[in-house]
Design a protein around this nucleic acid. Structure first.
Lengths: 343, 343
DNA sequence: ACAATTATTGACAGCGCTACCATCGGATTG
DNA sequence: CAATCCGATGGTAGCGCTGTCAATAATTGT
């Protein structure tokens, strides 16, 4: 004999079907494809569901249909503010849809990324959102074999696995440096921490902009693989000053570093922007109220999250986008820290 | 006839069992309770699993066992840095375990909380982690009916649904105010934004500390229900100054507000700490490198996340903790912004 | 009016796993 | 040496749902 009888109180699809006077399969269709039902049956099933308080058993559904309603999201960090905004967009967009978000954190490790992708593959997600375009060959193979829509976020590039939404970190950094150059600054330092692929691209934008102006000088560059903190911004800036005392501007790969630089300037009585211009990246909220307000590059992170989910869901449901790659661009937010000094 | 034959490549538990020369049920036990197998069979199943690259079908497992291996996590915000740290702890601890984290965001709405709890109930999670102790009666009923371990995080209180890990926001704020009073400050302002229950408790700590010193004055208080930003800190501080110009200290319910106050002071040439002491809350990383460094109350958020997961998993697996309520405490981080002025 | 097409509906089997119980051999006991 | 117990293993019958295809009803075209 099998197991204990089903608890009498449990409501299954069969009960709903019975109450509605239809077959179980028709009741099932009510959830998956309501348009296929005649209006009368649809109403009967609907009220039966409500009357019984029926809740579908997702495990049974997944087992029978070989599908899940899970969208996997792979991000490199939970601490980085940047991803908080993206995630907010992702969760906001997924709410109200039938899909559930499953989050995985790689901590900036591509091996960890392979591992979580393998895990996701085993669970047959309905769709996937992954960060960046620098997957290992192995990861790419997994992604391509997944047989579900995939959106790469945060940046854009030439060979999407499937879809992409992001912006060009290279262009953004190039634009930031061009702006600083326009202010007449010539010795523009570069401060970078945790040089992940996107930060690397910002560096390339910096490098090329400086080279184009014939102002590139390795002595202007200080980077580290250590994760970003505000304090680190101060430290790196101190290193830069020791190495190259005649700098007149600093481009920081993110706003936390920029804030650290600002604090270090306050500590050393370096006047910003008179003695030093500062430009950050991401346009976190605090940049606007710092003293002086910090220039930064605004990136549309919340929208990125929203777009990513929308694209994936649309693709799952057969509405493939015309254009698989969306460039959300960036805006240079010029504030006091990189404007002509009023003094 | 039923459906298409199983894809020949698909590896099920049956295949593993066959290769290992055992019954499927024994192979199943290999995963759920390996100690129950004899050493020889255990090894045979183990190598069969590896040889075939078998991956369990979680949906089938959930359907057959009426259990999932999901731990639901309910938090009020994804943007708030505080939760980023907690989440990091949660994800770090869950990694390597068999459990999967399912995140839900309530955006500080108790109705949204009810909704996500109802959703979770339908999925029969193995355990649950929820933020705070101010659930609605309905939410509490759901939690109690869930029949799985529940840990409330972020604060502690008298009547846990099940388990708790957090600290007393009241005590923390009381201690912060006591410290400021010890510095000889008498007119201590209170700045609060998004007055969620925990922030409310911090207010009560402030209020009682001030009353105990016979220094409580409603004119010292400025609060708003708007979400916290650094900019808002400056705005609220401006309001406070307008309302009560003779303040000599400000307690901010979080570090973002405190940073905003600091910037506003820089803007108005108010010397910190000489003219004004500032104390924040949470001890975010930047407080230590601000100029002057900001005093704050350190809370052990990462550990909170780790503990919460550990407690839930232990309880799921029958190892109930002796003490269901863990107080992680707090540390007052006294820095320049609230020390005697050196000037 | 009748065949051909299209919308609705239902029957059946089975997705891959585990709960429940039965079994079986060997160790322990008196 | 029989009675008892225990640990290891297997057989059976589903868990609750949906894919496939067939059957029926409604609609259309000529």
């Amino acid at each position: 004999m099998g197991r204990k009888q089903t608890k009498s109180g449990k409501i299954r699809l069969t009960e709903v079907a019975k109450l509605a006077g239809v077959s179980p399969i028709t009741a099932s269709r009510f959830f998956r494809n309501p348009e296929a039902l005649s209006l009368s049956k649809r109403e009967r099933v609907d009220s039966a569901v409500k009357e019984l308080g029926y809740v579908p058993n997702l495990a049974a559904r997944a087992l029978a249909s070989h599908r899940t309603e899970v969208i996997g999201v792979v991000i490199p960090s939970l601490t980085n503010n940047v991803f908080a905004d993206v995630l907010r967009g992702i969760y906001d967009s997924s709410e109200g849809s039938r899909y559930t978000i499953q989050l995985a954190n790689t901590r900036y490790s591509i091996l960890q990324e392979e591992k979580v992708l393998r895990l996701f593959r085993a669970q047959k997600p309905a769709g996937l959102i992954v960060t960046g375009i620098n997957q290992t060959a192995e990861s790419r193979t997994i992604l391509e074999s997944m047989n579900c829509p995939v959106t790469q976020i945060m940046e854009i590039g030439d060979s999407p696995v499937d879809m992409m939404v992001g912006f060009s970190h290279y262009d953004a950094a190039f634009a930031a440096i061009s702006h600083i150059l326009e202010q007449g600054r010539r010795r523009i330092g570069f401060l970078g921490a945790r040089m992940d692929p996107r930060v690397q691209r910002r560096f390339e934008g910096y490098r090329d902009a400086m080279k184009a102006a014939a102002l590139f000088d390795p002595a202007l560059i200080v980077t580290t693989s250590v994760p970003t903190t505000v304090t680190l911004g101060g430290t790196l800036f101190a290193d830069l000053l020791a190495q190259t005392p005649d700098i007149d501007a600093v481009f920081c790969v993110n706003d936390d570093l920029a804030l650290g630089v600002l604090f270090e300037c306050q500590r050393r009585q370096i006047s910003v922007p008179r003695d030093l211009a500062i430009v950050g990246f991401n346009d976190l909220e605090f940049t606007a109220s710092a003293v002086p307000a910090l220039s930064s590059v605004r990136t549309n992170r919340y929208e990125m999250g929203r777009h990513a989910v929308t694209m994936v869901i649309d693709a799952i449901e057969g509405r493939r986008p015309q254009e698989p790659v969306i460039d959300l661009g960036f805006q240079l937010m010029v504030r006091e820290s990189s404007m002509p000094s009023s003094t």
